[in-house]
């Protein structure tokens, strides 16, 4: 076996940081699973009109509750039809849009609110910190589901209302995590150095602090996204989320509930899909944390 200069160098220096990252990523099965499932569902959601075999709103009362193909149904409706004869697979595909839309936007809104508050509190400390901590405590004292139910009951359920309600309710974890991460980073030498050479506050925050706490942010984003998707399903299940005929997985579970004893697949199919999506997002978040956390970098 002949050694080239390159391999020799590699043996001496060890792998480059990029190679190490790649190794950690590909060695992490949970992360891979999460990325694969979430990526697939994203594609499904984006290309829903091309993928769905039928119009998810077209009802056919003569073909109600046909079983899915693995329970003796036909390939015309691979996952069967619902209580109004609408194609279950098409509704499931369009439902992915609703879930991801709500998860994504709710996490975005709450992320912006929570991060701004948390970083401000951690960086400035003092009165700002006291005010933010007070707000976080107020927010933590309110049960999310109850408040969401009350607001939706007053304003009526719709996609926009659900996104806004969840966005304005789920920022607490962002604020808590970002605040403590900022506190840790604030007194580091490079921050002090930046301050000493006269960088503006926004520059210190954006280019010195943020890059060093963004891995925590990503984890919280995934957690809250999963949380928002589950809450949307719960609200829709209770009839207060998105309104019919919009296909939502929670709504599908709710509609199938009546027939649960005789046609359990009506509940099982959207239930399993929801489970897989939330699991994938959580695994993705977990994996990202493992891969990016400093203690694993050595």
């Amino acid at each position: 076996m002949t050694r080239t200069a390159d391999t020799l160098l590699e043996e001496i220096q060890g792998p480059t940081p990029g190679q190490m990252l790649r190794k950690r990523v590909f060695g992490h099965q949970g992360l891979l699973f999460g990325v694969a499932v979430l990526g697939l569902l994203l594609l499904v959601a984006i290309f829903a009109p091309l993928l769905a075999p039928h119009d998810p709103y077209a009802q056919d009362l003569l073909a109600r509750m046909q079983p899915p193909v693995f329970l003796g149904g036909s390939w015309e409706h691979p996952l069967g039809t619902d209580h109004l004869g609408r194609d279950y697979l098409s509704r499931l595909i369009y439902g992915a849009r609703i879930s991801l839309l709500i998860g994504g936007f709710a996490a975005l809104i709450s992320g912006l609110i929570g991060t701004a508050m948390g970083v401000a509190a951690g960086y400035f400390g003092g009165r700002v910190d006291m005010a933010v901590t007070f707000l976080i405590n107020v927010r933590l004292a309110m049960p999310v589901v109850l408040v969401a139910l009350a607001i939706v009951a007053v304003f009526g359920g719709s996609l926009q209302v659900v996104i806004l309600v969840l966005g304005f309710l789920l920022w607490d974890r962002f604020a808590v995590v970002m605040r403590s991460s900022t506190l840790q980073v604030r007194s580091r030498e490079y921050v002090t150095a930046a301050q000493a050479i006269g960088c503006s506050t926004s520059r210190v925050i954006l280019s010195e602090i943020m890059p060093n706490i963004v891995n925590n942010l990503i984890v919280v984003v995934t957690l809250e996204m999963a949380h928002a998707i589950l809450l949307e399903a719960a609200l829709s299940f209770l009839g207060l989320g998105v309104q019919p005929p919009t296909p939502s997985w929670g709504l599908m579970v709710s509609e199938g509930k009546q027939m649960m004893l005789f046609e359990p697949w009506l509940v099982a199919i959207p239930g399993i899909t929801l489970f897989v999506l939330v699991l994938a997002i959580n695994l993705l978040g977990d994996g990202l944390r493992d891969v990016t956390a400093p203690e694993n970098r050595s």
Binding site: Y57, Q59, L61, L84, G156, S158, G239, Q243, P244, P245
Partner: peptide, 19 residues
Amino acid sequence: AEAISSFLNAVGIKTNFHM
């Protein structure tokens, strides 16, 4: 109610469903 609203949607009367 949902089945009826689908019939209305089909002729162009778009319904915002409130239960």
